[in-house]
Design a protein around this nucleic acid. Structure first.
Lengths: 108, 108
DNA sequence: TACGAACGTTAGTTCCTGCTAACGTAGCTC
DNA sequence: GAGCTACGTTAGCAGGAACTAACGTTCGTA
């Protein structure tokens, strides 16, 4: 999940994901969409592949890439976990407000 | 959403979020849980606050922090969008496989 | 087999970011 | 009001990441 977040926390890589979200594209065509060099995109694709966010399929000399949504499930579960305890959190916040209303009745 | 991902893409900040996911804690108590200096944690809290992932509440000289799950909604919607088009993507993959089966019938 | 096309890889540079040390600030207490 | 507490802020540094240039590799083709 650390690799997933590291991979997503870069604009260029998210742009790459947006490109191959619906269609499968070769590395060269992906690189052509950006103003950086081809090796730079190749490195980004490597990071995305290591994170399990894209899959590579070889077709002759070309390497076709497409998004692998399954690579997001762990992160999605992690984010959902913050909402699981939301009720507990609200309860704690209410208790804290009660306490602050008692001893620290200064400002709002 | 860029700020959200940047904020989450750091182990220390995720550890901080884990600490204040259920309970509200003062900055000093949060810093005490780690082996880095207090200013470092203060900077992390600043990043998390800018990303809207935590909220600050002042109580005397103390500043209490707690997680703000609403700050995750944009990211969650973004991640969900990858699954929305999953059926379309499968269709495209099937078509691509068809094409590769016709002209490039080399390996699997 | 030789050549070209479509890639990935490596070395090196620049820029960003997380950290520490030193300093500044708001609020409570005597 | 002086002093203490609990913080945040700033300057400076070190490690890491994104980029380019040069090179290596695999696959198809003449």
């Amino acid at each position: 999940m650390d690799a997933t977040l590291r991979a997503l926390a870069e604009v260029r890589r998210r742009e790459i994901l947006a490109l191959i979200r619906d269609v499968e594209l070769p590395a060269g065509e992906i690189a052509a969409q950006f103003d950086v060099t081809r090796p730079a995109i190749s490195q980004h694709l490597h990071v995305l592949r290591d994170a399990g966010l894209v899959v590579e399929r070889r077709e002759g000399t070309r390497r076709l890439y497409r998004v692998r949504p399954e690579g997001l499930t762990d992160l999605q579960a992690y984010l959902d976990s913050f909402w699981d305890t939301n009720l507990d959190r609200l309860k704690h916040a209410a208790e804290a407000e009660e306490r602050s209303r008692i001893d620290g009745s200064e400002r709002n």
